[in-house]
Each structure stands twice: as C-alpha cells, then as structure tokens.
C-alpha cells in the first residue's frame, strides 16, 4: 500500500465498550478453539492407537497443566458458542439496538461463566473429586 489513504478510527481512538471487547474476545476464542481442536484430534488419535497411548493421553490431560488447558478451552467454547448464537440472531435482524446488544452481551458473559462452572462441577462429581 504505497498510497496513503485515510483510515477509519481504530481501537486506540475509541472509548472501550463491552460490545467492542466482546467482539474482540469472540475472535480470540475462535482462534484459540481452532488451535485447541488439535488437542481433540490428538486425543482421538491416541484412542485409535491403542491402550498404552490412550492411558498416556489421559494422564497428560488429567495433570494440572492439562486441566488448566481444558478449563480455558471449555470457557472459550461456551463463550464462542453463545456469542455465535448472538451473532446469528443479529444476522436475522434481531437485537441490533444498542441496549439489546448490551443486554444479550451480558447474557453471553454470565451464561458462558455459568456453563463453564456447571461443566466442571459435573466433571468433578463424575470423576469423584480431583
């Protein structure tokens, strides 16, 4: 781009707002989930490769770094899922007013946190405590 064209204002100019932050987080969680899906692939491969590799994979995922990774992955998933539904609603023309967009954003944040918490309470109860 040799030619200097006028640029629209970017994030360093705007006052930070929830809707803007959520849009950025949606993209960030999307990228994180794409990378995280490799973990899912490796888990499936370890299961396909036999008992020894599967036990090793379970041991790695059950370790503290593994659990932290899975915790982040689960929040990213629920956030991206709920916010994705919010985007689909917008695509259909619903909830585009600012106050509606703010309210649905709060539902997404609280919902993602609640679903993540629920997942891990359920996980802990099934696993019988860490």
């Amino acid at each position: 781009m040799a030619e200097k064209r006028p640029l629209s204002p970017h994030i360093q100019v705007y006052r930070w707002q929830w809707t803007m932050l959520m849009s950025i987080v949606h993209r960030a969680t999307g990228v994180a989930l794409a990378i995280g899906s490799i973990l899912l692939v490796l888990w499936l491969v370890s299961l396909a490769a036999g008992p020894a590799s599967f036990e090793r994979a379970q041991l790695i995922l059950g370790s503290l770094p593994g659990l932290v990774l899975l915790g982040g992955w689960s929040f990213a998933l629920f956030y991206h899922l709920l916010n994705g539904l919010r985007h689909l609603a917008w695509d259909a023309g619903w909830g585009l007013e600012l106050k509606d967009a703010f309210a649905s954003g709060m539902v997404v944040i609280i919902g993602a946190a609640a679903l993540t918490g629920l997942t891990w309470v359920l996980a802990a109860s099934i696993y019988g405590g860490f």
Binding site: L47, G50, P51, S74, L77, A123, I126, Y127, G128
Partner: peptide, 13 residues
C-alpha cells in the same frame, strides 16, 4: 460432545 466427554471422564480405554 462436551457432555459426552464429561460423562466419560476417567473412562477406561
């Protein structure tokens, strides 16, 4: 799938 994963936590091979 996530629900399936949770219910198979600590599952054997």
């Amino acid at each position: 799938f996530v629900f399936g994963l949770i219910s198979h936590l600590g599952a054997s091979y």
